[in-house]
Each structure stands twice: as C-alpha cells, then as structure tokens.
C-alpha cells in the first residue's frame, strides 16, 4: 500500500474553495504512477455545486495522462445541471479500478454522496477532508469540526482522514502549512482522525517535508489555473 491511501476508492471532500479538485486530480495521478500504466484510474467529478474550475474541464489533458474522467458528457459538461452519469456506480463496484471522487464543496456538495451510500460500505473507502484554514468558515478547529459533522450527516459516509491543504495560492509559504498543521493537530486530537497527507506545490515541498517530517507530502501540479496564468506557481496579482 501507499501512505496516501488505504483503499481503492478515495473520496475527496471539504469546504468549497479548499482545493479539493487540485488534490483529487493529483491524487489520481499519484495512483496512476503508483500502480503503473496498466491500472485503470477513474476520476469521478460529482461536483454539482461548482461551475468553473471543475476536473471535467481538464478531460482531454487528463485522458492523455491515463486518467479516465467520469463526468456529465456533451453539452451537460458545461451546464449547471445535477446530471450524474450512470457509469459512476459501475466504477465504484469494479474492483479492478482505482477511483478518486471529486466531490462538490460543503455539505451541499457532499449531499450527492448520500445517493451512493449503498455502493460505499464502511471500510471500503478513504474519505479525505481537505482543509485550508485560510478560507472563511474553516479558519478554526470548532468550524472544522462542525464541517465534519455536517458533511458526514449529508453524505451518510464517514470521513477517515484529513488533508492539510493550507494555502494562499501563489503566496503560500511553508510556514502557512505549518500553522495549518497546528490546527489539524488539534482537530486530530478531538476527532481521532489522522492527517493522511499535506499538499503543496513542488516549489515549497522540500521545505514542507523538513518542517513536517511525519506527514507525507502530495505535490500538486496545478491544473485549475485562470486563463492569464503561466507557469505552475501562479501568484495572482494583488
């Protein structure tokens, strides 16, 4: 096994804007690279909350890299309709497939998982809560705990681990992840949930590894960039 996941099915959830989609895409690529070229890795976009910057937008690019993106097809790909593809259940049951579910943000986005509860018996999946304490409504441990309860209640699934995705996009420093880990440490104590990994761009990954030696690092290649961005470490302008 791998330290980033324990099960075939990884569900990526969290508050919206926490960076779930980047984490889901990069986790899919990590699975692909871990299991090799023969492995079928499906990235299921069940984000019916968000509109732009969804993993389905990178359909072709990810297909070239061996990731099978499951999302509404044709015109529906560009719609704000909650039209779920029929193949989702199949992928969840196909023991040959590695699956990553990119879930919409907040309890609202997690609600759709409740519909697949029968396909996801407890112990058959990792459900990772992506946390960015630089977002409103997840900037303290109480709020994070409330989010966990709300997502679990709506999705009717259990969160199994945490992902520290502390970031201010291109302005992120390793210290930001360290500060985030302090909060997650408190959350670990309160909930008993482990931090599965921290995620950050490659530029700061070595420094993060030094500061947080006990937590695996998922390096994020950035896919959800705005059209004016160039390069992997886009900072924006402020």
């Amino acid at each position: 096994m791998n330290s980033l996941w324990h099960h075939r099915v990884s569900i990526i959830t969290g508050s919206y804007g926490s960076g779930k989609t980047e984490v889901a895409i990069n986790l899919s690529l990590a699975k692909r690279s871990f299991y090799g070229n023969e492995a079928i890795v499906s990235l299921i976009d069940v984000d019916i909350v968000n509109l732009y910057f969804r993993s389905r937008d990178k359909f072709e690019e990810l297909a070239k890299r061996g990731i099978h993106v499951i999302a509404p097809a044709g015109d529906l790909r560009h719609a704000d309709l909650p039209a779920l593809p029929a193949s989702i259940s199949g992928s969840l049951h196909d023991t040959q497939q590695q699956v990553v579910l990119d879930v919409g943000g907040d309890p609202a986005g997690a609600t759709v998982l409740g519909r697949y509860q029968a396909d996801l018996p407890e112990g058959s999946y990792d459900m990772i809560l992506v946390v960015n304490p630089y977002r409103p409504y997840t900037d303290n441990v109480d709020a994070m705990q409330r989010l966990i309860s709300a997502i679990e209640s709506k999705s009717r699934l259990r969160i199994t681990a945490l992902c520290n995705n502390s970031n201010l996009m291109g302005f992120t420093t390793p210290e930001d992840l360290l500060r985030g880990q302090d909060l997650l440490g408190e959350l670990e104590v309160r909930t008993g949930l482990p931090t599965a990994f921290v995620s950050c761009v490659p530029a700061i990954a070595p420094a993060v590894s030094v500061m947080l030696p006990n937590v695996p690092v998922l390096q994020l290649g950035l896919y959800m960039l705005p059209p004016w961005a160039t390069g992997n470490n886009y900072a924006g302008e402020v």
């Binding site: 804007g17 960015n132 630089y134 409103p136 970031n167 201010l168």
Partner: peptide, 16 residues
C-alpha cells in the same frame, strides 16, 4: 500570519 484570506470572487464581493 498574513491578514489575507483565500476567497472566491463571489464571496469576496459579499464580504466586502
């Protein structure tokens, strides 16, 4: 820490 918050455009407008 920075005084900055990471926000989505629609949220940032609302908070402002």
């Amino acid at each position: 820490m920075k005084q900055r918050v990471l926000m989505k455009g629609n949220e940032a407008i609302a908070e402002a």
